[in-house]
């Protein structure tokens, strides 16, 4: 009954010898808002472009609304709204012409939604699309994508390059129009803050591999941050954790460690370092995400080492 709206099986894409998407398995149930996260170059856009039939996967399968990705019919395209990251519209058209042009292809076109979004972004219908600011163009694209009221919305980093106000404006419109209609949304971004207010579940890509697929609460729960205070210079961080050490940071008397999936044995390992204080602190979601996708390894801020280097 609750058939997934998007389903991939070992979806893989090579550019040259590098797998930019590596055996991706993902299932997004109907009615879910799925935040698709990762750093730039993690493989989010390539995945979305493969799903939309714009890029041919090297191997693997994908289904959209139950149909194979290679069999895009006009009916299926009408059910899927796609907003690409560049916010492309034909610059020589006016805002009104853009609406008319897009509406001509759809049997169902909700002009109210189109005008509401246009109004929300303060767009003049007679303005040339080529003369709009980046945020306004994003609003126009969103209006064009939302007006056909698609069952599935695929938004590829819609807020990319927008200033905070335009970003907020875009997200508000999206939430307003989509939330009450129980639509499925795949929403990619490289910032967790974009999706944290709307996403039911998130997937995190790291160098082509899906490393996390869970709710935000689960995500936050699996990432732990420890602060260890020492009487003197802290020792080097241990390398034998059972969980994955994401990052460590040392100062003159303090060492902080961020781990994914730490175990009791990891806590004992930390205790063996004989810190003066060992404290587990909560990370907010944004911080947890940055630690998760950020560069791995040790960072330090030891004054005596800096002096030696000098």
């Amino acid at each position: 009954m609750n058939e997934p709206v998007i389903e991939t099986r070992e979806l893989t894409k090579f550019y040259g010898d590098i797998p930019v998407v590596n055996m991706l398995n993902i299932q997004i149930p109907r009615g879910m808002i799925y935040g698709f996260l990762g750093r730039n170059g993690a493989g989010k856009t390539t995945t979305i472009r493969m799903l939309m039939g714009l890029v041919e996967p090297t191997r693997g399968e994908a289904k959209i609304l139950g149909q194979d990705r290679g069999e895009w019919t006009p009916e299926l395209r009408a059910r899927v709204g796609y907003l690409a990251e560049g916010h492309h519209v034909y610059g020589w058209m006016t805002v009104r012409e853009c609406g008319l042009f897009q509406a001509a292809f759809y049997q169902h076109w909700n002009a109210d939604i189109f005008h509401a979004v246009i109004k929300h972004f303060g767009l003049n219908e007679k303005a040339k699309a080529g003369g709009l600011s980046r945020g306004q163009r994003a609003g126009l694209c969103l209006a064009l994508t939302l007006a056909p009221e698609p069952e599935l919305l695929v938004l590829d980093d819609p807020a990319l390059g927008l200033d905070p106000v335009a970003r907020r404006s875009l997200l508000e419109s999206m939430i307003y129009v989509t939330r009450k209609q129980d639509r499925s949304i795949l929403f990619s971004s490289h910032l967790l803050s974009d999706v944290e207010r709307v996403a039911d579940r998130i997937g995190v890509m790291d160098r082509g591999v899906l490393r996390a697929d869970c709710t935000m609460e689960e995500f936050r729960r699996h990432i732990h941050h420890f602060v260890l205070e020492f009487a003197g210079v802290p020792p080097a961080p241990p390398q034998d954790f059972e969980g994955c050490l994401l990052a460590s940071f040392r100062t003159e008397e303090e060492m902080s460690l961020t781990l994914v999936n730490p175990t009791e044995r990891d806590r004992e390992t930390m205790a063996r370092l004989k810190p003066r204080v060992c404290e587990e602190r909560d990370l907010d979601l944004e911080e947890a995400f940055i630690r998760y996708v950020g560069d791995r390894g040790e960072k330090s801020f030891l004054l005596h080492e800096m002096g030696e280097k000098k």
């Binding site: 070992e10 893989t12 090579f14 590596n22 055996m23 299932q27 090297t58 191997r59 693997g60 579940r201 995190v204 790291d206 082509g208 591999v209 490393r211 996390a212 697929d213 869970c214 709710t215 689960e218 995500f219 699996h222 990432i223 969980g243 994955c244 994401l246 994914v260 999936n261 998760y292």
Partner: peptide, 29 residues
Amino acid sequence: PVEKDHCPHCSAPWQTPEKDGTEIFSVQV
């Protein structure tokens, strides 16, 4: 060939990407 699901020589499938310990998957997933 990377395009083929199975090795034409030994029929083995491709190995899934190596785990690095950062995996977070909900029970349902």
